[in-house]
Every structure is written in structure tokens, then in C-alpha cells.
Amino acid sequence: SPRFIALCPTTVSTSSSGSVDEEEQRLRSELRERFLRTLLLMTDKQVQFDMFEKVRVRATFGASDIDVLNFQVSDLETPLGVQKEALLRCHDMISCSFEL
């Protein structure tokens, strides 16, 4: 996506020489693959989201965008009732957790 291309330079321009680049790229792909596997494992599970200001909500995790800015969730339990579908902004979030 154009947004991802726009974000790329800020995340890969930290080193200069070729072999260092390759090593860094290998590390990035290894770390990223593990993160994507975590998201796969989280899919369709009941997840607890800890937001700022001590707000804690539960929902079923659906998907994340590539740059981890928004999470798509279902059946979000809010103090005002259950929201069938919702997007949570990751910037409002401290952490999220689930059991296997």
C-alpha cells in the first residue's frame, strides 16, 4: 500500500553498508515472521485490551493492518453495551493479552 511504502524508509535506513543491510534485513524478517504468527494465533480469540487511563475492554480479535495502527475486533464489550464490530486505535492501547 502507498502508506506502507511511505513508512518503509524510516524503518530500514538505519545502516549503510551492504552486508550489514543484509544481516539487518534477515533479523527483521525473522522477528516480523514471529510477530505475524502471534497475530495469527490471536485471531478469533477473546482478547483483553489494556488502554490508557486504565480502561480495560474485551473483544474477539480479527485482524491488524500491516503497520499495526488499528485492530479490527468483534463483539467489543464496552460500558455502554456490546459493539458488534469495531476498530481499536493501537495508539490508545498499552497492551493486549490472551490465553492459549
Binding site: 524503518t11 533479523l27 522477528l31 502471534t38 490471536m42 493486549c96 490472551f98 490465553e99 492459549l100
Partner: peptide, 24 residues
């Protein structure tokens, strides 16, 4: 995660199911 710098933590306690926490 190399994109968002989010940390994935795993806790495995005896007699409990493993839990996973993603810290943004």
C-alpha cells in the same frame, strides 16, 4: 515486531494455560 517495536511476551505457569501479551 520490527515495524511497531511491539514486544510479545509469553508466560507459561504450571497447571495453567500459556498466556501471551503484546505490549505496543
Amino acid at each position: 515486531d520490527p515495524v511497531s517495536a511491539s514486544v510479545v511476551l509469553v508466560s507459561v505457569q504450571e497447571n495453567e494455560r500459556p498466556s501471551v501479551r503484546v505490549i505496543l
